[in-house]
């Protein structure tokens, strides 16, 4: 008897590992380590009043129209999505100082208009290409100015670059010609 009571003072911890394993496996199974990634955008605030019409010089506006058949009209020309990035970059930078392209990168405005029947994947691809054009231009500017990759610049220097090449993308109310699916 005396021997028994002395033994019961010790709790058997041998199964502790099994219990922990069980919990571990449960959490292993329920864990999803998929990170959500996407194209981050900032929508313009809503206002009830009609927006005031700004008079812009035509040369500073890069208009992109997408119709319900997912075709692109860039500044009046039918364009393939693949060529959009290069076109946008050329327009913003205007290396040859042409008088039908942006006066200055900070005056360039991208105007994007689509139809209600445009496929979402096309829209996102266009948006992605325009964003990529800006990213590449900023990268070049960053290399030229600081000799560093844009990604690794401190915040204030990033802001400086962003001020030189600001992303101004205006989205118009979509047209309503195509069939919605």
């Amino acid at each position: 008897m005396g021997r028994n009571s002395r033994m019961s003072n010790e709790v058997n911890a041998g199964s502790m590992a099994d219990i922990a394993f069980l919990l571990l496996i449960f959490f292993l199974v329920t864990t999803t380590i998929d990170v959500d990634k996407g194209v981050l955008v900032k929508l313009p605030p809503w206002s009830e009043e009609e927006p005031e019409t700004l008079e812009l010089k035509k040369r500073n506006v890069f208009s992109v129209l997408v119709n319900a058949d997912n075709q692109l009209l860039v500044r009046g020309d039918l364009t393939n999505v693949k060529d959009l990035r290069e076109k946008a970059k050329e327009f913003i930078r205007n290396p040859n100082k042409l008088d039908n392209m942006a006066e200055n990168p900070n005056k360039a405005i991208i105007s994007l208009k689509n139809d209600r029947g445009t496929e979402y994947s096309t829209y996102l691809e266009v948006y992605n290409e325009l964003k990529a054009a800006y990213r590449e231009l900023r990268e070049v500017e960053s290399q030229r100015k600081f000799g560093k990759m844009y990604e690794f610049l401190p915040r204030d220097k990033k802001k400086e670059i962003n001020a030189i090449i600001p992303l101004v993308l205006s989205e118009a109310e979509p047209t309503n010609f195509g069939e919605e699916k």
């Binding site: 689509n114 496929e119 195509g178 919605e180």
Partner: peptide, 11 residues
């Protein structure tokens, strides 16, 4: 958004 969706509902 599913890639096949048209822009109407997204807008």
């Amino acid at each position: 958004v599913d890639g096949e969706v048209t822009m109407g509902i997204v807008t």
